[in-house]
Structure formats: C-alpha cells, structure tokens
Amino acid sequence: MLIFSALIPAVGLFVHLVTAAYKLQDDYGTSHTFFDNFDFFTAADPTKGYVDYVDRSTANKSGLIKASGGSLYIGVDSSNIASSPSRQSMRLSSTKSYTHGLVILDLEHMPGSVCSTWPAFWMLGDNWPSNGEIDIIEGVNQQPTNQVALHTSPGCSINDSRFSGSVDTSNCYVEASGQAANAGCAITSNCTQSYGDRFNKAGGGVYATEWTGEAIKVGSSRAPASPPILARAPPTLRAGVVLWRPLLEAATLTRTLENYRLYMFDITFCGSWAGDAWASGSCASKSSSCISYVQNNPSAFTETYWSVNSLKVYQDGSSLNNATVSADASSHTSIPLVSPTPRHAWKHAHNGYKHRQ
C-alpha cells in the first residue's frame, strides 16, 4: 500500500503511524561542508525556465550559498538586472542515493510566494518514471499552500478518502488517461501555513518523508507545533514517537522505487509551470511577461531562498546494514537530468499546465 501522510499543526489531531526504529544514517550538517555532499547542476533547465544554474565557485562568490549561525542559506540573485543567460540560481542533488528511509528537513525559511518563481524539494529515481519521483515541497508564483505529488509507471492511484487536503489528480501514472501529461497523483494541502510566505511568517517548520517497502508518507508541521523529535532529529527514532495524521492512501504500487537522490533547493523561474500559468493569474498585472518580470525586478526575489536548520536521513535500524546507500558520486553520471524525449519533463502538470518532463 502506497501512502502519503501529512503532519498538521494541531497536535491533538496527530495519530501514531510510524512503527520503525530509525537510526541516523546521514547528518548533512549546517557548515559549509554541507555542499560537499551535493552536485551543482549547471546545464540548461529541463523545465525551460529562465534561469542560470551556477556552479559552487560562482555561488560562493555571488553570495548565493552561505553557512552561518547554525543554518544554511541557498538563494538566487536578487541584486542585478538579469541579462544573458538569465537570473542566477541553484539546483542541487545529493551525491548519495537511498532506497527507503526517513528524510527530515527542518526549515527556517523556504522561497516565498513570489511571482515567476518555481521552487521545489524533491526526490528522483535513477530510471524515470519506472523508479518514480516524489515531490515533497513544490509550488509556483503566489501559490498559498504546498502541493505533494508522486509520478510513477502504471499501477498506482489514489483510491481512498482518508486525507486532509484536496486531490488535484488521482492517477500516479505519468501518462494516465484523462489527466494532463506528467500530472501524476497530486494533493494540495489545506494547511495555509504549509508553503511560501505563510510558512515563513509562522516561523518555518519541518517536512518529513518516510519511505518503506510498503508506503511513502510526506508530512509537514509548523515550527510552534513541531514534535521535538522532528525538529531536533535525534540519533534514534523509536516506535510511537513520530506523530502523523493521514493525508491520503493510494492503491498498491506495482513498480519498484529505488535509488533516489535528494534533489533539493531547486529554484527556477517561469518555465513550463510558472511561466505557462503567468497569464491566467494575478501575476500578469505586474509585467507583460514572466521573463520580463524576472529580468527587470531583482528586488522582487529577496525572499526567494532556503534557510536550512538541519537535513538528516535515517534508516530502519533493523535493516540498516542492508540499506541501499551509494556514496560514489561517479555512479550517478548516467542519471538523465534531461529527458530523452520532449514529453519527459521532470515534473508534473497542474490544472492543465505542463511541467518539466
């Protein structure tokens, strides 16, 4: 059974669903060595965004990455008029890959709800879509709440009503009939403090993703109500400590999900979601086009950054020694960062807008 779940602010509504005894596998830390564990993507954006993904050296010199005061800053250029090739930004992916585990991301700040932006924190398998994709945090423009999504081969769909949020699309198969191309199965949270400006005004919070052989769960909690076990991520997570409330349950998954890299702190502009949605939303009043807005309004992006308190990955203690964890960055060189065909755009569709695939 494939399960998405969400942590919600009201502690009294939490229910216990996690039973594994987890042990810390990787603590990414908050010093500048954090970035030693990630590849800096510098190719053209697969989502056709108006963005210049820069390397680590350039990011350092431009102040797009910083480590200070026990937190990490990962942002975009908010000082300069953007000329060729486009506005500088970041797209990082972990040098390690994981099969199963618990990923806990404690954020002080995520990119705000800003016109033209498309931030995401996500996980991707080696062979898309057979090995799948999990979108943990994602949104565009002035979107008020988070969207969680899963993209797979045939065999997975939402078929249960036990969730808190709204179903945008129910079939996780990226070519499902009756859905926009690459939509997958997606839910929009009903928590107004799950994303962007309101998440930040609430003081940040925690996103947790649990992935076992039976289920995938994605959850969030506002900082004031975050269980200490999530906010501080101690060495061991024991049964009954992580508190969850179901968001949704989906059908049996018939495809293998394995060897996921953490694709995080991805911030692009415009492209095949934020750009395509520009004309139909309130952002259109700000500029004649999404690209023009990105080019000429650097100060609009002062809130377009991630501030990370911690990132930790746990494995089930009973199977830790057998966990699939690859530390060889060279083994990932064959991962297709750009799809071999135009319809394989790395993301899904939302309300009819094509994403990166």
Score class of each variant (00 low, 15 high):
residue 2 L to K: 09
residue 4 F to P: 03
residue 6 A to Y: 13
residue 6 A to I: 10
residue 8 I to F: 05
residue 18 V to E: 11
residue 18 V to S: 09
residue 18 V to T: 13
residue 19 T to E: 10
residue 20 A to C: 06
residue 33 T to E: 11
residue 36 D to F: 12
residue 37 N to S: 12
residue 41 F to T: 06
residue 44 A to C: 11
residue 47 T to Q: 13
residue 49 G to Y: 02
residue 51 V to E: 08
residue 57 S to V: 07
residue 60 N to M: 10
residue 63 G to Y: 14
residue 66 K to T: 11
residue 66 K to E: 10
residue 69 G to N: 12
residue 73 Y to T: 10
residue 78 S to I: 01
residue 78 S to Y: 01
residue 81 I to K: 05
residue 100 H to P: 11
residue 100 H to D: 15
residue 100 H to I: 13
residue 102 L to Y: 14
residue 105 L to K: 06
residue 106 D to H: 14
residue 120 A to W: 13
residue 124 L to A: 09
residue 125 G to Y: 06
residue 126 D to K: 15
residue 127 N to V: 13
residue 127 N to E: 05
residue 130 S to H: 10
residue 132 G to K: 06
residue 133 E to M: 04
residue 143 Q to A: 01
residue 148 V to L: 15
residue 155 G to I: 11
residue 156 C to Q: 09
residue 157 S to R: 06
residue 162 R to Q: 05
residue 163 F to D: 00
residue 167 V to T: 11
residue 171 N to E: 07
residue 174 V to S: 03
residue 179 Q to D: 02
residue 180 A to P: 10
residue 184 G to L: 06
residue 186 A to C: 13
residue 191 C to Q: 01
residue 195 Y to N: 05
residue 195 Y to K: 04
residue 196 G to V: 01
residue 200 N to L: 11
residue 202 A to G: 08
residue 203 G to V: 08
residue 212 T to Y: 03
residue 213 G to F: 03
residue 216 I to Y: 03
residue 223 A to M: 14
residue 228 P to E: 00
residue 236 T to I: 13
residue 238 R to H: 10
residue 238 R to M: 12
residue 238 R to K: 12
residue 239 A to P: 08
residue 242 V to D: 00
residue 245 R to A: 08
residue 246 P to Q: 08
residue 247 L to P: 01
residue 248 L to P: 03
residue 249 E to H: 09
residue 254 T to G: 06
residue 255 R to C: 15
residue 259 N to P: 04
residue 262 L to Y: 04
residue 263 Y to T: 02
residue 264 M to W: 11
residue 266 D to M: 08
residue 268 T to R: 08
residue 275 G to P: 11
residue 276 D to V: 12
residue 279 A to E: 03
residue 286 K to P: 04
residue 287 S to I: 05
residue 288 S to H: 04
residue 289 S to T: 12
residue 290 C to D: 02
residue 291 I to M: 03
residue 291 I to P: 00
residue 291 I to Y: 01
residue 292 S to Y: 02
residue 294 V to Y: 02
residue 297 N to A: 00
residue 300 A to C: 03
residue 302 T to D: 11
residue 302 T to I: 15
residue 305 Y to L: 07
residue 305 Y to S: 01
residue 305 Y to E: 00
residue 309 N to V: 07
residue 311 L to Y: 10
residue 311 L to W: 10
residue 318 S to Q: 13
residue 318 S to K: 13
residue 319 S to V: 12
residue 320 L to K: 12
residue 323 A to T: 05
residue 325 V to L: 03
residue 326 S to M: 00
residue 328 D to T: 14
residue 328 D to C: 13
residue 333 T to E: 02
residue 335 I to A: 01
residue 335 I to E: 01
residue 335 I to V: 14
residue 336 P to C: 10
residue 337 L to A: 07
residue 338 V to R: 12
residue 339 S to C: 12
residue 340 P to R: 10
residue 340 P to N: 12
residue 341 T to P: 02
residue 342 P to S: 09
residue 344 H to K: 07
residue 350 H to T: 09
residue 354 K to I: 14
residue 357 Q to K: 11
